[in-house]
Design a protein around this nucleic acid. Structure first.
Length: 355
DNA sequence: AACGCGGGGTC
DNA sequence: GACCCAGCGTT
């Protein structure tokens, strides 16, 4: 059995002072947990502060428009989280507040097994596990779990170990769950864990051998290489930006007109993209090629500087169009494309093509 | 069980 | 480059 008292006292001494820990209201925990899904705490921190300042209560967030929320999320990635956070906020307000149990919380959009357990234990004190990547690692190592933690059976095994720690509620559930996560982030790290300082090294299976052998994971597929084109059209120091339609890759996100899954020199596709934004392209000059890796796609995108005139009309590719002064509110890919155009790279006149 | 979905830090 | 991060929802 893991020495829970040692784990808890280690946590109380070493816990980072995170803003949602200072005041772990259900709304703050909801916000932080959604932002931290597959995202480092340090990355989510400034977003949490901005959201909390702009929408201090769950009712404020529910009253915002989805577009506002997605735009405020820009740069954080996995944008369906933003839409689901907004939906969850509206749902919570409609039912008079966030429900206090993991079972009910799991019914809300964006809240799966981990997040439900985290909110229920941290904000409401329910004795339920919250198994994230850190807990996977800590418990797989301690118990020597040989099954892949990203398989259903492996996840069940880890969850059972985590649940057992709450058996007699010797430690406050929120403290225990956060202690496991904090330990995974600070001590029981993926590579070169510092076992010598671990408060629960006694009894740990992996410490006897090679800790980095755990947790076992299924092999992941490499991102598929794709190409695409993007165009920069400037006017009065601003760049033409479009909002991508749909909820697929970068759906709802702002950026310069870009077409994915077409060749680097597919100027017809680029011209159609601008036509959908209401512009007729006269010339396109290649200025850069940017690479952007998503979790499942490895994109090489050729960036063109565009000359065009207003033609009116709009196609279905974009849900909105505007002139964007800074690149704020854009996806990271969008900002990268804008930056490529601002760079002092020489124009590739030899590749220039007039439409 | 596999896939779609972002972005960035770290070694 | 590879790995992985306070994962979830769909198929």
């Amino acid at each position: 059995m893991i020495d829970r008292a040692a784990l808890a006292s280690w946590y109380l001494e070493h816990a980072r002072a995170l803003p949602w820990r200072a005041e772990p209201t259900p709304y703050h925990v909801l916000l932080s947990e959604l932002m931290c899904q597959q995202t480092r705490v340090e990355t989510a921190l400034p977003y949490f502060e901005r959201f909390r300042a702009r929408w201090p209560t769950v009712a404020d967030l529910a009253a915002a428009s989805e577009d506002e929320v997605v735009e405020a999320w820009a740069g954080l990635g996995y944008y369906s989280r933003a839409r689901r956070l907004h939906q969850a906020a509206r749902s919570a307000v409609a039912r008079g507040g966030l429900p206090p149990t993991a079972a009910e919380l799991a019914d809300l959009p964006g809240i799966g097994p981990y997040t439900a357990g985290a909110i229920a234990s941290i904000a409401f004190g329910e004795a339920v596990p919250a198994v994230d990547g850190n807990v996977d690692r800590v418990l797989a190592r301690w118990h020597g779990v040989e099954e892949a933690v990203d398989s259903p059976s492996g996840k069940r095994a880890i969850t059972a170990h985590a649940a057992a720690l709450h058996a007699d509620r010797a430690i406050a559930p929120g403290v225990l769950n956060q202690a496991l996560m904090e330990l995974g982030a600070r001590v029981c790290k993926p590579r070169s864990p510092t076992c010598g300082t671990c408060p629960i090294r006694s009894g740990c299976t992996a410490r006897e051998g090679d800790p980095s052998r755990f947790p076992v994971k299924r092999p992941r597929k490499a991102p598929v290489a794709i190409t695409g084109v993007a165009g920069l059209l400037d006017r009065d120091g601003r760049t033409l930006a479009v909002r991508r339609a749909g909820t697929g890759l970068l759906g709802g996100l702002w950026g310069p007109p870009a077409v994915l899954e077409v060749d680097h020199d597919d100027l017809d596709a680029l011209a159609r993209a601008f036509a959908d934004a209401g512009f007729s392209v006269r010339a396109a000059v290649p200025v850069a090629t940017v690479r952007h890796v998503f979790s499942h796609r490895d994109l090489s995108c050729r960036v063109y500087r565009i000359e065009a005139e207003e033609a009116g009309g709009r196609g279905a590719a974009w849900s909105d169009v505007r002139w964007e002064p800074h690149g704020r509110g854009m996806s990271s890919l969008g900002r990268k494309i804008v930056a490529a155009g601002r760079a002092d790279a020489p124009l590739l006149a030899a590749d220039s093509r007039i439409l």
